[in-house]
Each structure stands twice: as structure tokens, then as C-alpha cells.
């Protein structure tokens, strides 16, 4: 069994699947995430595939501020993901609320609701920074125990 576990762990890092959730961002970060998936930046070369189902995903990319309505969706998505999982918060808004921090419907960064492993700053972060963040996430991912 040990060999099988080792194999699973190793292969998981070589091909993590990614779930992207926009929780109240201005779209700037989202289009940069999508730009990462398309030819010029192409994170598929790290074996990363964008999926729509949280149950298939290892990596959660969250952009934007959390508000009172989407926090439930965010928690729901994070809970549905199997362990081990990595949460990457993208952009100033995902980190702290960014320019919107004083708005009435904004709670703040993603880490107020779910634990975050990697923070990628920028408004919006460049695709290079996003890729860097994802790769840093993968290093942490390799050290995580199975759930």
C-alpha cells in the first residue's frame, strides 16, 4: 500500500486540477487567470487543468473580496474539495479587500472565511505572478498529508 500512496502523492503534484472562483472581484484578476490558461502563458504545461467541479479539484484559486452573500458559496466550494487541498488568494482584493475594503458589503480578504495557503499580491497580479503563486502552492501541496 505504501508504494501506491507514494505514487498517488507524486502523480497528484504533477497534475493538480484547478478550480477558479470569482468572489466579487472586478474581473481584472479573473481574466488574468484565464489568460494563464491560454496559449501565451499556458499553465497546462504544469499539468494543470481548469475544472468546474469542486469535487475534482486540488487547487482553489479565489479572486476578489468576500461579501455577505458569496461567503456561503465560498465555504461550500472549499468544503466540497477533497483533502489535501490548496487555497490561493489572488489580487489585492483577495488579500485584504483592496480598494473596496471600506465598502459596506465587503467583509475583507478570503482568509477571513477560509484558510489560505498562498497569497499573490497585485492589482491585478500579472500572469507570471499567478503562475509563481500556483507553483509555490504545489510545493506546499506536496508536503500536505492526505485527509
Amino acid at each position: 500500500m505504501d508504494i501506491l500512496k507514494k505514487l498517488t502523492r507524486k502523480s497528484r503534484i504533477k497534475s493538480p486540477w484547478l478550480l477558479h472562483f470569482d468572489c466579487g472581484s472586478c474581473n481584472g484578476c479573473d481574466i488574468e487567470v484565464l489568460a494563464c490558461l491560454t496559449p501565451v502563458y499556458d499553465i497546462e504545461r504544469f499539468g494543470i487543468i481548469n475544472v468546474g467541479n469542486p469535487k475534482h479539484a486540488d487547487l482553489l484559486l479565489v479572486t476578489g473580496t468576500v461579501n455577505h452573500r458569496n461567503k456561503k458559496v465560498l465555504v461550500n466550494l472549499a468544503e466540497q474539495m477533497p483533502e489535501p487541498k490548496i487555497v490561493v488568494a489572488l489580487g489585492s482584493c483577495g488579500l485584504s479587500g483592496g480598494v473596496f475594503r471600506e465598502a459596506y458589503n465587503v467583509i475583507g480578504g478570503v482568509d477571513k472565511i477560509i484558510p489560505v495557503d498562498v497569497y499573490v499580491p497585485g492589482c491585478p497580479p500579472k500572469p507570471e505572478a499567478i503562475i509563481d503563486g500556483v507553483v509555490t502552492g504545489l510545493e506546499k501541496f506536496s508536503k500536505k498529508k492526505d485527509g
Partner: peptide, 21 residues
């Protein structure tokens, strides 16, 4: 309402030059 931030109200805390941002 999943993306509602209420940024029109930020005009109260930012001056009219900062609102460009």
C-alpha cells in the same frame, strides 16, 4: 448579489480625484 460591493458609496470616503481609481 454575489459580486455586490457597494462601491458607489465609496464616494463618501474618497475625494472626487481618488474616485477615478
Amino acid at each position: 448579489g454575489y459580486v455586490h460591493r457597494g462601491l458607489e458609496m465609496l464616494a463618501d470616503v474618497r475625494d472626487f480625484h481618488q474616485m477615478i481609481q
